[in-house]
Amino acid sequence: MAKVLIIAEHDGTELNPSTAKCVTCAAQLPEADITIAVFSNSPGAVASQAATIESVNRVLAVADDSSEHALAATLAPQIVALMGDYDYAFGPSTTFGKDLMPRVAALAGVNQISDIMSVEGSHTFKRPVYAGNAIVTVKAPDGHPVVATVRTASWPAAGTGNSASVEEIANNAAVPSHTRFVELQSGKSDRPDLQTAARVVSGGRALGSSENFDIIYALADKLDAGVGASRAAVDAGYVPNDMQVGQTGKIIAPELYVAIGISGAIQHLTGIKDAGTIVAINKDEEAPIFDVADIGLVGDLFSIVPELTDAL
């Protein structure tokens, strides 16, 4: 049996959809027995949500005041204290999991498998390297726990309808006080979340200013789409950092991705290669984005985008 511990990602009240994606991945392991661990100062609500995910055998609700904010330094020792009973510890390849899981792996004395995109066997996985330009098959050593992050764009979220048992347990691990949460500035909007939206519209450097980005938002609103951006647009200050799509931003897999005034650098493309349909609007017919686009339109975005918004 493969006993898997999945670390829930949440904001204190809502379970993040990345957790149900980790479950889909874990369920591919032979004879998977899946536990979700919710670490929080008050884990109840999130634990009940986790218990509804299909394939989950049980949920552990671990209450500790230090877990009010998800800090790797305070969570990692609590996870390692639980891990004795498990063969696997999985977290999502979001900034939460990427920060946390290597700390867990190191305390457990193993290397981490980053960004699992497929499960090939009990200890064999595929993952992307070189900005997704190569896929490598990695074998983890037998007889040691496997600590990994799950590439969220590669896995659909597991369904709900389950009612797994929720067990409340106390934390016995010592947590350090050397790392303290100060604040989170989040650009919360009413638009669909970039990482889970079925449709995403992104703008690049060509937009030229944050005011001009309004035409991207207008199109996105018509399509009920999330909004993303290239690194160049983020660096230029047109939009906040949490909108960056790509190798070092968010890796997404919407059904529809519309790239507007984005050239299509490999670092950007690696963030969208799992999208269903890619639409590109660019005035340069040689732009590399057209090599991957399913539908391409050459022209000036400042006339095309408002016209498209009106046409929809």
């Binding site: 939460f96 050397h178 100060v182 989170l184 500035q185 989040s186 906040p240 949490d242 968010k250």
Partner: peptide, 13 residues
Amino acid sequence: REVDAGLETIEID
């Protein structure tokens, strides 16, 4: 720190 939800500030010793 650049996190998925925005910008998080932490204090570390």
